Amino acid sequence: MERLSPAQRLQIIQLYYENQRSTRAVFRKLRETYGPHDRPTEHTIRYTIVKFETQFSLLDNIRLNRPHPARSEENITVVAGSVRDDRNELIRRRSQQLGLSEWVLEKIEENPLFSTNILFSDEAHFWLNGYVNKQNFLIWTEE
C-alpha cells in the first residue's frame, strides 16, 4: 500500500463525502490530480476511509520499537547453563524451551553478512500443467 501524506489522506476523505461516499468516484476524481497511473489505488482509498472512520485519524500508526534482547547477558547465562545440564539437547528444542532463536545468531557469527543473503517472500503457486501466476512470482538472476 502506498504511503500518503496527511494532506493527501484529507483530500481522499473530502472527496469521499462530497461524492456520496463512493470510493469509485473518489478514484475517478483523483485522476485529475495524480494522472491515470500515479493515483492511489481503490484499496488505499478504502483503507484510508476505514481508518478515518474507526480511528478518527489521518496520521500513520505509531509503531513502538521493542528491543529484542536475544544476546543479553541473562540469555547467554541461561543458555550456557542449559548446555552444561544437557549437551545432547537439540538446539531447536533448547531454543523452544528457553524462548530463544539461536540459528540466525549462529549463522551471523559464522558470516557477519549472512543477514544480507536472506530473502523473505510470500507464497507462489505452481501448477502441474505449467501455469505460473505471474502476479506473485519473481525470478532473480545474476544479471
Rank of each mutant, 00 (worst) to 15 (best):
T41H: 04
R21I: 07
L30D: 06
R31M: 13
Q8L: 10
Q14A: 09
H37L: 15
Q8H: 14
A7M: 11
N19L: 05
G35V: 00
K29F: 00
L15E: 03
E42W: 05
R28I: 12
G35P: 01
L15Y: 12
D38K: 14
R39A: 03
R31Q: 11
N19T: 09
R24D: 14
R39D: 00
D38Y: 13
D38C: 11
L10E: 04
T41R: 10
T41L: 06
V26M: 02
Y17H: 09
D38I: 07
V26W: 01
I13W: 13
S22A: 09
Y16V: 07
T33Q: 05
R24A: 13
H37W: 04
P40E: 01
S22I: 07
H37Y: 10
E18W: 08
V26L: 07
R21W: 09
L30V: 04
A25P: 13
H37I: 12
R39E: 05
E32Q: 10
L10W: 00
R9K: 15
T33H: 05
R21M: 13
G35Q: 03
Y34H: 11
L10V: 02
T23D: 08
N19I: 04
T33K: 02
G35L: 03
N19F: 06
D38A: 12
L15M: 10
R39G: 00
V26F: 04
R24E: 13
H37F: 12
P36M: 06
R24C: 10
Q14P: 03
F27M: 06
R21L: 13
E32H: 06
G35I: 02
H43N: 12
L30T: 03
R28Y: 05
R21K: 14
A7E: 15
Y34R: 04
R31E: 14
Q14M: 06
A25V: 11
E42G: 10
R24I: 14
D38H: 15
V26A: 02
Y16G: 08
R9E: 07
Q20F: 07
Q20E: 12
N19A: 06
I12E: 01
R31V: 13
Q11M: 15
K29V: 08
T41P: 01
P40S: 05
H37E: 11
R9G: 02
E32I: 04
Y17N: 07
R39P: 01
V26Q: 00
A25G: 11
N19W: 04
L30H: 02
V26K: 00
N19H: 15
L10C: 05
F27G: 11
I13H: 10
V26R: 00
A7P: 09
L30A: 07
G35F: 05
E42M: 13
P36R: 03
I13G: 10
A7R: 06
A7Y: 09
L30G: 01
R9Q: 09
Y34Q: 02
L30I: 03
Y34D: 03
E18P: 07
T23N: 10
V26I: 07
R31W: 11
L15H: 11
R28N: 13
F27S: 09
Q11I: 10
R31T: 13
R9S: 08
Q20D: 14
D38M: 12
T41M: 01
Y16W: 12
N19P: 02
A25Y: 08
Q11T: 13
Y34G: 02
L10P: 00
Q8K: 12
S22P: 12
Q14Y: 03
Q11S: 15
N19Y: 05
P36F: 08
E42H: 06
